[in-house]
Each structure stands twice: as C-alpha cells, then as structure tokens.
C-alpha cells in the first residue's frame, strides 16, 4: 500500500545547540572536566609532596641550601647507620606488637559489646573516647602516667599497695620505654578496631548462631567456625588500616619520648623528622621517609591478597 496523500511537513528548523552546549556534550571533554577538581587536589596535596620527598631523598639538600643530585648516597649512608636500623627494628616491632594487642583486645571488646548489656549505647560511646581525644592530648596524659616522679602507677604500687619500694622507670631506659609506648598506642588504637569489628559482628545473622547452637556447637566452636570466618573480610580491612597507621605513627612517640632515651624509641617517621627538620638534613630525612615505602607497599599487598573477595561472597559460578 502506498501513501496517496502527503502529510503536512513540520518545517520548523531544528535549533542548533550553542558552542558551549556542544562542548559539554562531548564526552572526552566532560570526563576531563569532571575529573579536574579531584586530579587538582590529588596533584597539589599528594603527588607533589610525595614526588618532592622522593626527589629530596636523592639530593643532599639541607635547610637553607639547595641540594644537588647525589644518587643513592643518602641510602648508602643510612645502611651503615645503626640508629637507622634501630628505627627500622622498632618500627616493625612497634607495629607488630601493637597491632596484635589492638586486635586481641579490640576483638574481645567487640564480642563483649555485641552481647545484650545494660547501657549498651553509653558503653559504646565511652569506648570511643580514646579515639576522639586528640593524639597529642592523650600523649601528654601518658607522659604524666609514665613520669618518673609523679606517675600514678608508681604512686599506686609504692604508696597505696606498697608492693614496690621505688618508682617505676617507664621512660628512662630503652626497653621499658619501648613497651610503654606500645601500651599507649594499643590504648589509643583499640576503639577503632573494636567499633569496626562490632559493626562487622552485627552483620552476622543471629539465626546462624541459633542454627549452630542446634548443631551442637560450644561457644568456642561458634567463634571459630562462624564468627571468625564471617568477620574475616572486615578484619582484613581494619588490620590493613591499623598496620599502616601504626607504622607511620609519629605524634605519640614524638610527644612522649622524642625518640629517646638514646634513640631507642625512634620510629622511621620520628627519625625522618628529627634528621630532616631540627637536624636540617632534608635529603637524609627524606631518604628515611622514602625507606618506609617498601614496608607500606607490603602492607597494602597484604590487604590486596587478604581482602581478595572470598569465593563464598561471590554470586557467580563455581569455577
């Protein structure tokens, strides 16, 4: 069948969009325009300082003197520097022990708070306190707690309980100082771990525990076979963050001991600062900071593999 009548045609010319409108319709431009603010912020505040730091590590810059490229000289020097190796050792030790402590206590606290307790929300709020207080403030509090003369712990042990005759020497010698700082870091880090793990615990359906109860499990078996594997994904995330934050810690150590006594409590971050700013050796300080990068990459890889979505979380086929 063919049309015998010609329908009236619509003659109005289609309005052409303006230049600007066409520009914004052009997808590559739009992508670029949308990314620009984020790229700008990242470039100015992340890439530039990081790049500058890495560049400085390969120069002999000091404060007030523009340096020249010296290749790996800073690193070669650091490799022979026992104080640097001491800082590497303490950074790893500090991170390892503090992470272990934070997770053991944080998980325990999370499990406790996951029960039905009176005043549960109030308790949760109180738990968060160490995390809310600025680090420097809590560091000063610990400084007092660890004070050789006015320490409250010494007061309790010597004057109240009478179990000791002399005050504790918390910060005066290497190992007590190291353990004291780790204790302060654990105290500060617990809330983050506990609250994150508590959030993870609350996503586990109570009926799983009921099913396990009927299946004849003991409380330990319920933890071992239900809670722990189901908490694993969030545990891995929180642990990665915790390791990174602990390894790069600065405030607590610098406010309490400044790396002393005799450099025994220097972390890489505090040593880098000490050499770079008060010491004026910007290049050497930067080199110390750059030497943290391999450790942090390792921690990130740990998260990458540890976090790799487990098979049971995926919906796809079994192959």
């Amino acid at each position: 069948m063919s049309a015998t009548t010609v329908p009236a045609t619509w003659n109005k010319a289609r309005q052409q969009p303006g230049r600007l409108a066409r520009l914004f319709d052009y997808k590559p431009f739009l992508v670029f325009a949308c990314l620009l603010p984020a790229l700008g912020l990242l470039g100015v505040f992340l890439t530039y300082p990081l790049g500058l730091g890495i560049w400085l590590a390969f120069t002999d810059t000091t404060i007030g003197r523009r340096g020249v490229w010296i290749g790996f000289e800073n690193f070669e020097y650091l490799f022979t520097d026992p104080i640097f190796w001491n800082a590497v050792f303490y950074s790893v030790f500090y991170t390892g022990v503090a992470t272990l402590g934070k997770f053991a206590l944080g998980l325990w606290l999370a499990l406790l708070l996951n029960n039905h307790l009176p005043l549960k929300s109030l308790l949760r709020a109180i738990i968060l306190l160490p995390w809310i207080v600025p680090t420097v403030l809590s560091a000063i509090a610990f400084w007092w707690i660890y004070d050789p003369q006015f320490s409250i712990i010494s007061y309790l042990a010597v004057d109240v309980l009478g179990v000791r005759t002399t005050n504790f020497d918390f910060l005066g010698s290497a190992w007590p100082a190291r353990w004291s700082l780790i204790a302060a870091n654990i105290w500060r880090g617990i809330p983050f771990v506990a609250i994150s793990l508590l959030a993870g615990l609350q996503t586990i359906s109570p009926s799983l525990y009921e099913a396990a109860l009927l299946d004849g499990s003991t409380p330990w078996q319920r933890f071992r076979y239900i809670t722990f594997p189901m908490l694993m994904p969030i545990l891995a995330i929180v642990m990665t963050f915790s390791i990174i934050f602990t390894f790069t810690d600065f405030q607590l150590v610098y406010a309490i001991t400044r790396g002393g006594p005799v450099n025994s409590t220097h972390l890489l971050a505090t040593l880098a600062f000490q050499r770079g700013i008060p010491g004026g050796q910007l290049g050497e300080g930067a080199a110390i900071a750059v030497s943290m990068i391999p450790f942090l990459i390792f921690a990130t890889l740990f998260s990458y593999f540890g976090l790799a979505r487990r098979k049971w979380q995926q919906g796809e086929g079994n192959d």
């Binding site: 099913a211 009927l214 487990r310």
Partner: peptide, 19 residues
C-alpha cells in the same frame, strides 16, 4: 538445645554462607 536431639529449618534457612 544441642542435647534435645532436634533439628530446625529456619525461615531464612540460616545456611552458613562461608561453607
């Protein structure tokens, strides 16, 4: 419960997702 020798099927099945 574990000594009552009963088995229960839950409304949401309560299957262990990681097994």
């Amino acid at each position: 419960p574990k000594d009552r020798d009963i088995a229960m099927v839950f409304q949401n099945y309560a299957l262990y997702p990681h097994m």
